Amino acid sequence: MTSYLVAQSELPEEREKRRERAGKSAGETYKATLEQLQPGARIDIASPADADSRRFRPNEIADYDAVFITGSPMHVYHETAEVDRQLDFMRAVFASGVPSFGSCAGLQVAAAAAGGKVRRMPERMEAGIARRISATQAGRKHPLLAGRPGSWDAPAIHGDEVEELPCGGTLLASNGATRIQAAEIKYDKGIFWGVQYHPELALGEIAVALRAQADDLLEAGLANAKEQVLSRADEIEALHKNPTDRALRWSIGIDGEFADERQRRREIVNFLGCASQLRR
């Protein structure tokens, strides 16, 4: 039986808040997505940042076919016990040789664990839609981005970013807001594919996140009034309910790469298709 380990860095209070808003923790969202893409797979969820969490050794992680690192509010440049535990877990994943994939904070965790740098975005957040993501020369040939057009939009909400990839990192995609939008990282015995955006999320979850962080978006200068944030959240929620609505797509300024669930999940699908070949 195929088995996956999903690692969430949300702490218990953060998980409960997300369940109240969106119905699932970040790890539970990933599990639901993987269950749809790989029916019958065994999917376990771990919370390695928690003080009382199980400490995974590389040989224990080696029992899995792949590991997924979720997004979260964690700031990996802060020196805390929670961050240390999350980075230790990621280094154990690399040491196991099991291929891994992550989004948003997942990319940041992998980069930091391998020696890269993460920072708060110096100018603004990226929220709702990451616009005009474009593959680098390396990315155009990389299987993670197979099937993506020259430029695409994706769901995103983050105020931190990878500033510098570690040695062994390859930049695969960028846009005007965040230079490192997709990357491959080779470290120790492992390989990681990751993106700064959120291919695992339903659009309804992005709408929920926008409403929850409306004050942060105002402070970042992405909107002039809370009503503007709520209006965009309403549009994205409406698209979640009716992704083929042409008028709504035109109003938001997106195409099927963002609106269609299968296309939105393309990087996860590509990773799953390559995972067995990536094991080292």
Results as ranks from 00 to 15, higher is better:
residue 36 Q to D: 13
residue 36 Q to V: 10
residue 37 L to E: 07
residue 38 Q to D: 06
residue 38 Q to E: 11
residue 39 P to V: 14
residue 41 A to F: 09
residue 43 I to F: 07
residue 44 D to N: 14
residue 46 A to S: 08
residue 47 S to M: 12
residue 47 S to K: 12
residue 47 S to I: 13
residue 48 P to G: 09
residue 49 A to M: 00
residue 49 A to D: 00
residue 49 A to Y: 01
residue 51 A to T: 06
residue 52 D to W: 00
residue 52 D to Q: 05
residue 53 S to L: 06
residue 53 S to V: 04
residue 54 R to V: 14
residue 56 F to T: 11
residue 56 F to H: 15
residue 56 F to S: 13
residue 57 R to D: 02
residue 58 P to G: 15
residue 58 P to T: 15
residue 58 P to Y: 15
residue 59 N to Y: 10
residue 59 N to R: 14
residue 60 E to D: 15
residue 61 I to R: 13
residue 61 I to C: 13
residue 62 A to K: 14
residue 62 A to M: 09
residue 64 Y to L: 13
residue 65 D to S: 12
residue 65 D to G: 14
residue 66 A to L: 06
residue 67 V to N: 04
residue 68 F to T: 05
residue 68 F to Y: 05
residue 68 F to P: 01
residue 70 T to D: 09
residue 70 T to H: 10
residue 70 T to G: 12
residue 70 T to P: 08
residue 71 G to M: 07
residue 71 G to P: 02
residue 72 S to Q: 08
residue 73 P to T: 12
residue 74 M to E: 02
residue 74 M to P: 04
residue 74 M to K: 08
residue 75 H to L: 14
residue 76 V to N: 06
residue 76 V to M: 08
residue 76 V to S: 08
residue 76 V to H: 05
residue 77 Y to A: 04
residue 77 Y to V: 04
residue 78 H to W: 03
residue 81 A to C: 03
residue 81 A to Q: 14
residue 84 D to W: 01
residue 84 D to S: 11
residue 84 D to Y: 02
residue 85 R to E: 02
residue 86 Q to K: 08
residue 87 L to I: 12
residue 88 D to A: 15
residue 88 D to N: 12
residue 90 M to E: 00
residue 91 R to M: 08
residue 92 A to Y: 06
residue 93 V to K: 07
residue 93 V to Q: 04
residue 94 F to R: 04
residue 95 A to E: 15
residue 95 A to V: 11
residue 96 S to K: 07
residue 98 V to Y: 03
residue 99 P to M: 10
residue 99 P to V: 12
residue 99 P to N: 11
residue 100 S to A: 15
residue 102 G to T: 06
residue 103 S to M: 03
residue 104 C to E: 09
residue 105 A to Q: 06
residue 105 A to V: 02
residue 106 G to Q: 10
residue 107 L to M: 14
residue 109 V to F: 02
residue 109 V to K: 03
residue 110 A to T: 05
residue 110 A to F: 03
residue 111 A to I: 09
residue 112 A to I: 04
residue 113 A to H: 08
residue 114 A to G: 04
residue 114 A to P: 00
residue 114 A to E: 03
residue 115 G to T: 07
residue 116 G to F: 09
residue 117 K to N: 05
residue 117 K to F: 02
residue 118 V to P: 01
residue 118 V to C: 03
residue 118 V to W: 01
residue 119 R to P: 00
residue 119 R to S: 10
residue 121 M to I: 02
residue 122 P to S: 07
residue 124 R to S: 09
residue 124 R to V: 01
residue 124 R to I: 00
residue 124 R to Q: 06
residue 125 M to S: 07
residue 126 E to M: 12
residue 126 E to Y: 11
residue 126 E to V: 13
residue 128 G to R: 09
residue 128 G to N: 10
residue 128 G to A: 12
residue 131 R to G: 01
residue 132 R to N: 13
residue 135 A to T: 04
residue 135 A to Y: 02
residue 136 T to E: 14
residue 136 T to W: 14
residue 137 Q to W: 12
residue 138 A to H: 13
residue 139 G to L: 10
residue 140 R to E: 13
residue 140 R to D: 06
residue 141 K to E: 11
residue 142 H to C: 02
residue 143 P to H: 04
residue 144 L to W: 01
residue 144 L to D: 00
residue 144 L to T: 01
